[in-house]
């Protein structure tokens, strides 16, 4: 395929993905807006008033970046794992597999779909957050970099999950038992300074601590970890996930017989 044809194929996958999640917006976009509104109301406003400040900012301001990042992670991941597994389940993935679309275009197309949903949901959640607090972005470069890398990395992880999934239960295992606990324990609602030394040390091996704190640094200028480590970790995760997704789709694992 020529470069132009590959670009068309990429845009086609992206278009298909965007149309899919917009078609079912009550399942894909609305829940995050409602859930985050409740978080802002309960944790930020009601409980937050009693907590006072955390990390040098109001509790409301403190939780907003973490919640936005949580929305990006879960939506990027969920979009690709749901869509690709669905395509496997109804065999419509064969439409792509029999076509001349190169493997890397398929991987990037699905990842772009996940990124677009992650970013769209983050805009919705940020808009909701602005009803509760003001946000003065500390460093736009860090914000954009973290959002881009995080959404790409977790979209790719969703694709890998979808390749291995045999049932809809398999699609939900990682988000339910891995992503959600790691996100909640990733410093969304608290500063690592509050933890005893042992648990603070344990938290250092949770990758989502780095993601959440890097984003919080970009928004508020405060972080519990060194954000260069965060960026290194995110870049590493993205590269490894991309290479593995390429390997899986290129070799036809669980897709071709």
């Amino acid at each position: 395929m020529s470069a132009f044809e590959q670009w068309v194929a990429f845009l086609t996958i992206l278009r298909k993905e965007v149309r899919r999640y917009l078609r079912i917006w009550t399942q894909t976009l609305l829940p995050s807006a409602i859930t985050m509104s409740l978080y802002f109301l309960i944790f930020g406003t009601l409980i937050g008033k009693r907590i006072g400040t955390m990390g040098g900012v109001s509790y409301m301001e403190f939780v907003v970046p973490g919640l936005i990042m949580m929305a990006i992670i879960t939506n990027s991941y969920a979009n690709v794992v749901g869509s690709f597994f669905g395509a496997k389940f109804n065999n419509s993935v064969e439409e792509l597999l029999v076509s001349p679309t190169p493997t890397y275009v398929i991987v990037l197309g699905y990842a772009a779909g996940g990124v677009s949903r992650g970013i769209l949901v983050s805009i919705i959640v940020t808009s909701v957050a602005l009803f509760f607090t003001d946000l003065d972005i500390h460093n736009w470069g860090v914000v954009v970099g973290v959002v881009a890398l995080t959404s790409v990395a977790f979209s790719l992880c969703g694709l890998i999950n979808a390749v291995f999934a045999n049932t809809f239960d398999d699609v939900n295992i990682v988000p339910t038992f891995v992503l959600t606990p790691l996100t909640y324990l990733g410093g969304v609602f608290y500063s690592l300074d509050l933890l005893p030394d042992f648990w603070s040390g344990v938290s250092q091996i949770n990758p989502l601590v780095y993601v959440v704190n890097a984003f919080r640094y970009g928004v508020l200028g405060v972080s519990d970890v060194d954000i260069t480590v965060s960026f290194a970790m995110l870049i590493g995760l993205t590269v490894v996930a991309f290479a593995y997704a390429m390997h899986l789709l290129g070799s036809g694992t669980r897709l071709r017989t």
């Binding site: 194929a9 149309r19 076509s99 001349p100």
Partner: peptide
């Protein structure tokens, strides 16, 4: 859940059309 036209447009797109 896709409509008929989208099925064809997407398939064509995978061939770079």
């Amino acid at each position: 859940f896709e409509n008929v036209e989208d099925v064809l447009i997407h398939q064509a797109g995978y061939y770079g059309i």
